[in-house]
Nucleic acid binder design. Structure first.
Lengths: 120, 120
DNA sequence: CCGTATCCTGAGAGATACTG
DNA sequence: CAGTATCTCTCAGGATACGG
């Protein structure tokens, strides 16, 4: 493969931190939480161990802005807000599963690689 | 979907920054660069616009440690070093393609969502 | 050619406290 | 219940310069 690399081979690629921040700490997990149906703010906080309300709010707002989920506030007392995946958000589940499948298939191999690196 | 979320639903999931840092700024692109065959340090710097040697070195070392690629130094003058994907590294291409396919399919939709957010 | 050595910056993330 | 308001911190990433 002696062909030189195209200097512009990433020209069409969105920059990291561009269109969708699926690679951040929480986005993928939030999608998983909403996979089974709409959830409320506090409900999300439970599996998202220790996420602070500020960070959860920021994550949800970003995802809402990107059209991955919807926020619905009901005018009740006490307040009730529900977050639900859009079709767009739901469409991310497939590629996410591809990544998870890779992890399951190769995690052992990876752990071995790290171990033998430590060894020498 | 009134079933409560499992508080431990992410128990088995590796922490972000865990096993494989594919979500960082450079790892995926480096894999793309090596897809077509082994490459040298300076060769990688070309499409990786503006990556500094320090950062490229750090990325390559991390990937080597994880068994995603190999580093081969030839004892010549001037020095020659080649980086090549391992089978493990190559196996990441498939799930990466799944993500790229998603981008291609939904980028327009996403851009629309952002625009309408700005508008209203 | 292939890196190392320093120094620096910013953004994501967390701790803590408070409110409609 | 569902957030906001501050403050702080860490660390990936970058700028620059130098070395085998």
């Amino acid at each position: 493969m002696p062909e030189p690399l195209d200097p512009d081979m990433f020209a069409g690629c969105p920059p990291v931190g561009g269109p969708v921040r699926i690679g951040d700490k929480w986005t993928a997990k939030i999608i998983r939480c909403l996979e089974s149906g709409p959830r409320r703010f506090t409900e999300l906080q439970v599996p998202l161990r220790g996420i602070t309300p500020k960070v959860l709010t920021a994550s949800l707002r970003a995802m809402e802005r990107d059209g991955l989920l919807t926020r619905t506030a009901y005018d009740e007392i006490p307040p009730r807000v529900e977050y639900a995946l859009t079709d767009l958000g739901r469409s991310l589940i497939e590629p996410m599963n591809a990544g998870c499948a890779w992890s399951r298939a190769h995690l052992a191999e990876l752990t071995r690689a790290r171990a033998s690196w430590q060894a020498g």
